[in-house]
Each structure stands twice: as structure tokens, then as C-alpha cells.
């Protein structure tokens, strides 16, 4: 971890509403180099919010505050819309959960991948097509020409997610946020997609933030893991050391996951302590 890609200090996201302010993310701090960082947590723990805050995509009236939020040495807070347009897609990107919803249903796959090239690389139509086809091949799609001309509803979930990866990586970003990239897929397909993602990230030396609620996947796929609960980071530890985690929440999560090595008749229930959020 020689170079710091992303530096986050006390990042908070809040949504003011009629019944008071909702704190979606509270004082999260972490750094990321060209490595894989996992963020795990249950629903509503703020992991998706963290990812979108980094991309500057917190919808109004949400408020983003941080002591520091910088990407490759440049601050990200209060950037202009045109700055963001140059950053997103080109230097940082995101893979979303379900290709059924995250691909535009009325555009051909090829058009959606080419769009990224044309927005950032100044590609001509022909050049964008070449790059898109090459990218479809890179995500191990057997017949790139066919898929290029297909619509999202004609693809399976696994194929759709590969197309999504192609669309988000074609402009070769430095940072990739993968927000539950395999949760909507069949278990058998999950591994294929993860392997493709793994290869591309390694090959291109990208920084990866892997958001998931699946402890097993995260611990096998990432270098470090952040455990989140209620919008706060509970603990950070090396992926191999999850078993040695100190925080009671992390220990409870590990204990609650079924394991083939140590089968148990009854899994532990996670007990949450309001004091953690104080």
C-alpha cells in the first residue's frame, strides 16, 4: 500500500426530515491504497451511503460533511458539477447490485458501454465500439458481438452483471466501488463474476471498495475489512484475522455465520448494544 488513493476522515451523511435528522453515516474514517477494502454490515448500516458519498451522489436534501475526503490528493467536497463529471466513470466508478435495475432497459448493451468511452475518452463511434467489444471480451463474454447488440432484458443476471462491470471499467478508473455486486446473482454465478472482478482489479491495479453483507465473501476476497453498524465503523481488521476480532459486534457476526468446519445445531443471535452508537 504505497500510494493513498482515498483518504476519508470523519465522513458523515445526514438527511434532515420532518421527524428530525437521520444520520446515515457518522464520523467514518479510513484510507485506501491500491488494495481491496471490504465494508460489511447489515441493512441500513451505512455501507451503501459511504460508497455514494465518495462518488458525490448523495441526493438532496442529504448533507455530506467531512474533515477530510480526498481522492489522489485532491479534495472531493464542494467540487463543481463539471469536475465530478470528469471524475465519475473516468477515475472512480461503481458497480451496482442488480443488473436488472442498473442497466437502462431501452438501450442496447453496446450503446451503454460505448457511452462511457464517448463521455471520457473522446472516442469516435468506431473506436468506442472497438473498446466496448474488447471490454466485453475482458469480462469473459463468449459472444461479444451478440451481447453488444442485445438489450438488458435479453441477458441473464450473470451476463448483465458482466456487462455492468464492462460499462464501469471501460474507461479504466483507479477506484472501483462494488456495491453488493453479487447479491442479486445465483450462488454458482457469484463465483464467476467475483473471479472476473478479481482478475480485472489485480491486472489494472485498482483500488477496490467491496461492499457486502456476506462476511465469507468479503473475508476471502479482500485485504482489509471495515465492520459497520448503525452508520458507524465498529472495527477495522485484516481479512484473515476476522476470527481474532475484538469488537463484540464483529465477534457476534462471525459467530452467527454457519461454518462447515465447526457445525453447530444452533447459531448465535447477534445482540446489539445501544452504547456502541453513543
Amino acid at each position: 500500500m504505497s500510494e493513498t488513493l482515498l483518504s476519508v476522515r470523519n465522513l458523515s451523511v445526514a438527511y434532515p426530515g420532518r421527524s428530525g435528522v437521520t444520520h446515515a453515516l457518522r464520523n467514518a474514517s479510513f484510507t485506501l491504497g491500491r488494495e481491496r477494502l471490504g465494508i460489511v454490515g447489515e441493512s441500513g448500516s451505512g455501507k451503501t451511503t459511504a460508497g455514494r458519498a465518495i462518488l458525490g451522489l448523495i441526493p438532496k436534501p442529504g448533507i455530506v460533511m467531512a474533515d477530510e475526503l480526498s481522492f489522489a490528493g485532491e479534495p472531493l467536497l464542494n467540487r463543481s458539477e463539471s469536475d465530478w463529471r470528469k471524475l465519475r466513470g473516468r477515475r472512480m466508478s461503481m458497480i451496482m447490485q442488480d443488473p436488472k435495475y442498473s442497466l437502462n432497459p431501452v438501450q442496447r448493451i453496446g450503446q451503454q458501454i460505448s457511452e462511457t468511452c464517448r463521455l471520457h475518452l473522446g472516442s469516435t463511434r468506431k473506436d468506442a465500439e472497438q473498446r466496448s467489444l474488447a471490454m466485453l471480451e475482458a469480462v469473459k463474454i463468449r459472444d461479444p458481438e451478440l451481447v453488444y447488440n442485445q438489450y438488458p432484458h435479453q441477458l441473464s443476471g450473470g451476463m448483465g452483471q458482466r456487462a455492468m462491470i464492462a460499462m464501469m471499467l471501460v474507461a479504466e478508473p483507479d477506484l472501483l466501488i462494488a456495491d453488493e455486486p453479487t447479491s442479486a446473482l445465483d450462488v454458482t454465478v457469484q463465483n464467476d463474476v467475483l473471479r472476473i472482478l478479481d482478475d480485472l482489479v489485480t491486472e489494472r491495479g485498482m483500488g477496490l471498495i467491496f461492499i457486502s453483507h456476506n462476511l465469507t465473501i468479503v473475508s476471502s476476497f479482500c485485504d482489509r475489512v471495515l465492520i459497520m453498524y448503525g452508520g458507524k465503523i465498529m472495527e477495522e481488521c485484516a481479512a484473515d484475522d476476522l476470527k481474532k476480532a475484538r469488537h463484540p459486534y464483529t465477534r457476534a457476526l462471525v459467530a452467527a455465520a454457519p461454518s462447515l468446519d465447526e457445525p453447530r445445531a444452533e447459531l448465535a443471535t447477534v445482540v446489539r448494544d445501544p452504547a456502541w452508537l453513543a
Binding site: R88, M94, M96, E115, T116, M167, M168
Partner: peptide, 15 residues
């Protein structure tokens, strides 16, 4: 409110 709109913005499209 659909995800593909967010995806377009992630790719670098303006609002």
C-alpha cells in the same frame, strides 16, 4: 428513482 439513472451518473453523465 431507478438505479440505471444513478448508473448513468456514475458513468459521468450530467444530471
Amino acid at each position: 428513482a431507478q438505479e440505471y439513472v444513478t448508473a448513468a451518473r456514475v458513468k459521468g453523465r450530467s444530471f
